[in-house]
Design a protein around this nucleic acid. Sequence first.
DNA 1: GATGAATGAGCGTTCATTCAT
DNA 2: TATGAATGAACGCTCATTCAT
Lengths: 205, 205, 205, 205
Amino acid sequence: MKPSSRIERDRERRITDFVRAGEELFFEKGYHNTSIEDIARRADYAVGTVYRYFTSKENLFEEMLFGKMTNYCEHMQRVFKAVAAPEEKLFQGVRAKLDFFEKERRFFQLFVEEIAPMAAGAHAVIVSQRCLELKESCLQNWVKLLRQGVRSGKFRRMDCEKMVLALEGAMHEVMREHVLHHPRRSLAELEPFLCDFIRSAVFIK
Amino acid sequence: MKPSSRIERDRERRITDFVRAGEELFFEKGYHNTSIEDIARRADYAVGTVYRYFTSKENLFEEMLFGKMTNYCEHMQRVFKAVAAPEEKLFQGVRAKLDFFEKERRFFQLFVEEIAPMAAGAHAVIVSQRCLELKESCLQNWVKLLRQGVRSGKFRRMDCEKMVLALEGAMHEVMREHVLHHPRRSLAELEPFLCDFIRSAVFIK
Amino acid sequence: MKPSSRIERDRERRITDFVRAGEELFFEKGYHNTSIEDIARRADYAVGTVYRYFTSKENLFEEMLFGKMTNYCEHMQRVFKAVAAPEEKLFQGVRAKLDFFEKERRFFQLFVEEIAPMAAGAHAVIVSQRCLELKESCLQNWVKLLRQGVRSGKFRRMDCEKMVLALEGAMHEVMREHVLHHPRRSLAELEPFLCDFIRSAVFIK
Amino acid sequence: MKPSSRIERDRERRITDFVRAGEELFFEKGYHNTSIEDIARRADYAVGTVYRYFTSKENLFEEMLFGKMTNYCEHMQRVFKAVAAPEEKLFQGVRAKLDFFEKERRFFQLFVEEIAPMAAGAHAVIVSQRCLELKESCLQNWVKLLRQGVRSGKFRRMDCEKMVLALEGAMHEVMREHVLHHPRRSLAELEPFLCDFIRSAVFIK
DNA sequence: GATGAATGAGCGTTCATTCAT
DNA sequence: TATGAATGAACGCTCATTCAT
């Protein structure tokens, strides 16, 4: 083993520690109500140490968000990469989304809810270019999917870009409400409604 | 004319000035990055003057939001109060929403976009109970409308509460993207897509 | 009647109004917790009007204090001007002090208590030269009295200046405690103790 | 030596620095006219540093006062704990008080003078419960002492509680005047007068 | 590399004072 | 003369960031 390997591994570990601590706290209290000292304490390091691994509080937040978004995209990627008919993939995508956020409710709240219209709480969102690109590339997978379906004659003719936005908006809003009002219940409960909704919006007849 | 009329009008004017300045700045820079001094300067008053009309920064934000929400709800109310078939009202509702936010793009960004997933900026949202109630009562109008349509046999059978959330989420997301990427173009352009989307999601066949 | 007479009387009346309002509020809440607006409201005038009659908040406080001190000195003067043996006057002085502060408990709290060692409350004291002179002239009356008593052979030989301070300090401290712990009971209850105390401190044998 | 010893000592040092700076400034300008920035500058630290050691301005004031009061009480305790006849202890108490305040003139001014009737300056006093209790326990030592003397037949029969207040009031007032008008002279000069005063007030005959 | 004390700019808020009406 | 809206300096306090150890 290279000596740098262990050092590198240590470094990764620190980063993970801070990101996890930040994650928890940003979720619990929001960006502005979380101080670097909070994060350092939660991760069991000194304040100064945070600045060895992140250039600023904003940077830490952004890294955390990017990591989560990467996880999300990779999770969704698995569906889109698989071989299946578009109409089947559509429902698999819905399930994948519900699955992912089932495990990552905290992140969902940041991703959609806490951040969503009229939600309570005093939080801040800092979103970097690369996060937006990640999100965009994720959306494009859906777009391609719809285009395939249209070409294959299974889906209605439509403005696929707009349709994806509409479907995402619809899913998120329904999920948001569910998480907010039924924090104990599984997101999977929404599958029938969402699949039905999407079917009627997208499928021919 | 009441003797207090002019004084009262002056007072209203100040409030409007501050609310407008706050609106602009909260949108531009977010709640936490906007200082009372910023607002005062933008409105061309001294810092202390803000506190003659609002008890705190939070109060100013909340008043602004509540005022806008009230306008929005009253605007939508006109549609729901009118006499018309549910299927007609549905489309009138879409048009009303597009109309309102056409004129209130700034507020829309606060209402949906800035606050919506992945938007840039470091912001906080403080939403009072009364704002949430206003929003809820607004949603209930849509719910009633759907129920009428279902009863009359024009709309499919559905979970009306969830459907309203889905439609709102869809509309907002599409509008959000439009406003963000085509700030010069009219929101009315979205009417065909949205009406079609809603029709296929809600109507029988 | 001269026209200026009524104007002058009006002026006096305003001053009295403000002084009384200030008195009440300074007593209730202390100097720093009382704002000019409080005073104006209590006296039923506008804020600006206060500044027609007083140059500043401090000036208002000082005028109030000077007025009270003047009353106090005049009250005590009556005793000292009267013809009586020193030993008799001494006790009359004690009674006069108890009398005065019986009626002016609020002022007493400012004069001695609130201001006295270790008392609770967050207050401020602004004392002008003329108030100090008034107080000094008041003390000198006691000094003269003691000197007379010494000359007449009734009182022990003593450093009269120091003795006056000692007696005043003693009286105020005892009164302070009484007012603080027995706000309902009369200060007159203290007369026996104080007279006895003074007798043993001052009289021969 | 404990490893934390030096760190602990540093911490103590900072606290002492701030307390001393506060002491000076509160005396010079009063509580309300002293800002945290003043204190920080005087102690040669930045504003924020004050808040590492004190939770608030009020807390700093209170800690300062409590610390001084504790010193004072411990100083007096030594006298009261010693074995001696009451009449002897009484005079030792006077000496102890003069001694203590000889070294702690600044504190004396806060303890008695600045806070005493008619002193100049615009000040506030914030006194916590524990300070009041400390003061009270201190007074009780004097009370017990007087009771002993009365029982032993050396002191006159008297209301011991009131007598202690009277004696304290007398001493403080005389000391106050001395410190104010003769800032260079020793408080010890007052011993003969005060002892004589107390003797005549307390002793039989 | 890790620490955590120190920093100081910046914020929300107050209020004595002014002045146009 | 009376008013009270407007002013803006000043304050207590926070916290992201730095740097000596």
